[in-house]
Simulated assay, not measured.
Amino acid sequence: MNTPMNAPQSFTLQRNSFGRLVLTDAAGVAHDNVIPVRAFPITSPDRGMSLVSSDGHELAWIDTLDQLDAPTRALVEQELASREFMPEIQRIVSVSTFATPSDWTVQTTRGTTTFTLKGEEDIRRLAAPALLIADSHGIQFLIRDQKALDKHSRKILDRFL
């Protein structure tokens, strides 16, 4: 049985010919199809990360991404970017109505988009002052700091909270 490794330098990480991550542990055992998983993806995305095997067993624990050498860190960040999609709302442009369901037009870190909010219960409070909004297709939109939004956006948001 494999035990998790706490020291990031006790393994190497590379991509195989299929583009999948391969972790080679200190004993020289290669583990194919390794997946990085954040412990706290919203509140602390650069701290607490596990590298897990394809069957879900933890192979290595990373306290912070800063502990990794530059090539390994780049591999982990590339893999996470390809798997994670959570645009951050920077501005609420408009809503179709203040009743639900309503169509929201927002500016995000990934560009301007429109989504449908089915109900107020799809706006979840996280650790203050963050919010998570789920659209009708299950896509999650993050508002990292609702107080940092412009006045127009806060006014719209307040109508739904």
Rank of each mutant, 00 (worst) to 15 (best):
T3H: 15
P4H: 12
P8N: 09
S10R: 04
S10I: 00
S10Y: 00
F11Y: 07
T12F: 14
L13F: 01
L13D: 01
S17V: 04
S17L: 05
F18P: 00
F18R: 13
R20P: 00
R20C: 00
L21P: 07
L21G: 03
L23Y: 05
L23H: 07
T24S: 07
T24A: 08
D25H: 03
A26L: 02
G28E: 06
D32N: 06
D32K: 03
I35F: 07
I35C: 02
V37T: 13
V37Q: 14
A39P: 07
F40C: 12
P41K: 05
P41C: 05
P41E: 04
T43G: 15
P45H: 09
P45D: 06
D46L: 14
D46I: 12
D46H: 13
R47Y: 08
R47W: 14
G48F: 05
M49D: 11
M49W: 13
V52N: 04
V52Y: 02
H57N: 12
H57K: 14
E58F: 02
A60G: 05
A60D: 01
A60E: 03
D63Y: 04
T64M: 03
Q67I: 08
L68N: 08
A70G: 12
P71L: 15
P71S: 14
P71H: 14
T72D: 03
L80R: 06
A81P: 11
A81K: 08
S82C: 13
E84Y: 10
F85A: 13
F85H: 15
P87W: 09
E88S: 13
E88W: 05
R91Y: 15
S94Y: 13
V95W: 13
T97Y: 06
A99N: 08
A99G: 04
S102Y: 08
D103I: 10
T105I: 14
T105N: 12
T108W: 05
T109C: 09
G111E: 03
G111M: 06
G111P: 09
T113K: 12
T114N: 15
T114L: 13
F115I: 11
T116G: 07
T116M: 09
K118N: 04
G119D: 14
G119N: 14
D122R: 04
I123S: 04
I123V: 09
I123G: 12
R125Y: 07
L126A: 06
L126S: 01
A127T: 02
A127C: 00
L132K: 10
L132H: 09
S136E: 14
H137F: 00
Q140L: 12
F141A: 03
F141H: 10
L142A: 12
D145W: 10
D145Q: 13
Q146E: 15
K147S: 12
K147T: 13
L149Y: 04
H152A: 10
L157V: 03
R159Q: 15
F160D: 04
